[in-house]
């Protein structure tokens, strides 16, 4: 793919319009890599000049901070802010709501001030500006689709409409799960839960969430968070509903259908 690395661009004396913050899941998890690629593909098609940090990107530190380890968080934050400030980065777009929240709300107290957007808002703006057009036969008309609100996008940052607007561009039949928007049920990954076994209980959170999606009869669940995606994959599998429910990030849905 035609993706530029920031250090190379910088060496060539160029600066990108935006920095695409890929995030750990987006870089390493095979399923989430597909989301990363879709978003990069969209950026390329639309002609937005962007770069990634590549091996200079470090985890934002979100899971460590929320697990209670401020040391690890501060180390990583320091490192990232140094890198970003050295490259004089002003605008960041990321496909991960956790990275988004940390970069936007938490790095400023540490000397990292950037204009940060989540890809849902970024995509919505591209659609509104007419830069993304859905190709012929790309419409999802008649297909039921439901959107899963990520906690760190929704409640934490009040972004509920942008991802839904993106889905509207696909003309799909948007249905809501029992709990949605500010009442949305978590996927179970946040607060570093993703990285450990559940505490004792009678159900996994992602299974409870998958049940809500199944109840809507939607054939597609759209997400806008890599961690939600990983949890959903597992939840839907547990319910043996893989055949009936397709899991897609909003970026994938757009990339597959744009002209």
């Amino acid at each position: 793919m035609g993706v530029k690395i920031m250090s190379e661009m910088f060496a060539a004396g160029e600066s990108p319009e935006i920095l695409f913050w890929v995030g750990c899941a987006g870089s390493f998890d095979q399923r989430v890599q597909r989301i990363t690629k879709s978003f990069a593909e969209i950026l390329n098609k639309v002609g937005v000049s962007f770069a990634i940090l590549g091996s200079e990107e470090a985890c934002t530190g979100d899971p460590a901070r929320r697990a209670g380890n401020e040391f690890v968080f501060q180390m990583l934050a320091y490192q990232n802010i140094q890198t970003l400030n050295n490259y004089n980065i002003k605008k960041i777009v990321t496909t991960c709501p956790h990275c988004f929240n940390t970069l936007k709300n938490e790095y400023s107290a540490l000397g990292g001030n950037y204009e940060v957007s989540h890809h849902s808002t970024f995509l919505q703006e591209l659609i509104d500006a007419g830069k993304i057009k859905i190709k012929e036969g790309g419409s999802m008309k008649g297909k039921k689709i439901t959107f899963h609100d990520s906690c760190y996008l929704g409640r934490a940052n009040n972004i509920y409409e942008a991802p839904r607007k993106v889905l509207e561009a696909l003309d799909a039949d948007l249905v809501e799960m029992k709990s949605c928007r500010s009442n949305g049920l978590c996927c179970g990954a946040g607060g570093a839960q993703m990285f450990k076994e559940d505490e004792p209980g009678d159900k996994r959170i992602n299974v409870a969430r998958a049940e809500e999606a199944i109840a809507t009869g939607a054939s597609t669940v759209a997400a806008a968070c890599p961690f939600c995606m990983i949890m959903w994959e597992d939840g839907v599998k547990q319910k043996n509903a893989e055949a009936q429910i397709e899991l897609k990030d909003i970026a994938e849905l757009i990339a597959e259908r744009m002209s």
Binding site: M1, G26, S27, G54, S55, P63, V72
Partner: peptide, 19 residues
């Protein structure tokens, strides 16, 4: 996270392999 800058045991050098 301290050693590889990611919560998983991947080498940071491989971050951009998806390209």
């Amino acid at each position: 996270m301290e050693n590889n800058q990611a919560p998983w045991k991947f080498s940071n050098e491989d971050r951009a392999n998806w390209i």
